[in-house]
Design a protein around this nucleic acid. Structure first.
Length: 258
DNA sequence: ATGGTAGGGGGCCTA
């Protein structure tokens, strides 16, 4: 079973890319971020016409996440617990078919500029995610936390780490918060399979970042022990970043023996 | 140091 995370940067602008990607790469499950659409106007036919079940959690203009799956999705939860006043659509969970696999799709706040209120929101959001992960892990079941984390874990995850030292994606507070989440007992799937540096999932549209391979790795799949035991492969699919009218992110994948 | 690009939505804001 293949599962991918893909920040598509706008579902409407990316209809062609998304359709091509579903046809060619055929994920069994995918989580999408930055759909930038309310649920009522989400172009569901792109996904449903290809035989997928679909659950969305959108908002107007910004953010927004979705889960699609060839198997039915149930027990869907929208929104990250811990702050009833938070109106940003950045979290969705569902259980897949009768596999028992719980998939959490997340779009972690960017947090720039740092310091500032947006950075405070990022760190508070990460504390809420830690609490949610702790609660889910207590059941000792297969869990996947997949999405755009907006955190560069290590210097090896950036082509030019020195350019990011003041950035919310690489500041010590952000990296420490990610380490706290992992320290609950989660595994970075890509790093279980690929310890080597130079693997990226995002290249800025600006300044020819893709052409110069000036990338960062910020799209991650964290696995519970019960999911990590089933991991057979993990990889980044770079090809869609070179397609016409691409997202600035590219898909990151895992294969699970489920 | 700045501005470089992109999406959504019809104003700048977010990234």
């Amino acid at each position: 079973m293949k599962l991918a995370t893909f920040n598509i940067n706008g579902i409407k602008a990316r209809a062609e890319v998304l359709g091509r990607w579903l046809d060619e790469s055929a994920p069994d499950i995918a989580v999408l971020q930055e759909i930038k659409s309310v649920d009522a106007t989400f172009p569901r036919e792109i996904i449903e016409s290809r035989g997928y079940h679909l659950e969305t959690h959108g908002q107007k203009g910004f953010n927004g996440v979705a889960i699609l799956s060839k198997m039915p999705l149930h027990d869907v939860m929208r929104g990250l617990p811990g702050d009833d006043g938070d109106e940003q659509a950045r979290w969705i969970e569902a259980t897949v078919g009768d596999s028992g696999l719980r998939v959490c799709g997340l779009y972690l706040p960017n947090g720039n500029p740092a310091p500032g209120p947006k950075f405070d929101y990022k760190l508070a959001w990460m504390a809420r995610m830690e609490a949610r992960a702790r609660a889910l892990l207590a059941a000792e079941t297969p869990l996947v936390f997949a999405g755009d984390y907006n955190v560069i874990p290590q210097p090896a995850d950036a082509a030019r780490p020195e350019a990011w030292v003041e950035d919310a994606l690489f500041r010590p507070e952000s990296r420490a918060a990610l380490r706290r989440i992992e320290a609950l007992g989660l595994y970075d799937a890509l790093r279980l399979r690929h310890p080597e540096p130079g693997i990226y999932s995002f290249w800025d549209y600006q300044a020819g970042a893709w052409a110069r391979n000036d990338g960062i790795r910020i799209d991650h799949l964290l696995l519970s022990p019960q999911a990590a035991d089933r991991l057979t492969d993990a990889w980044v699919e770079t090809a869609p970043r070179a397609w016409e009218k691409p997202s600035d992110h590219t898909p990151v994948w895992i294969a699970l023996d489920l």
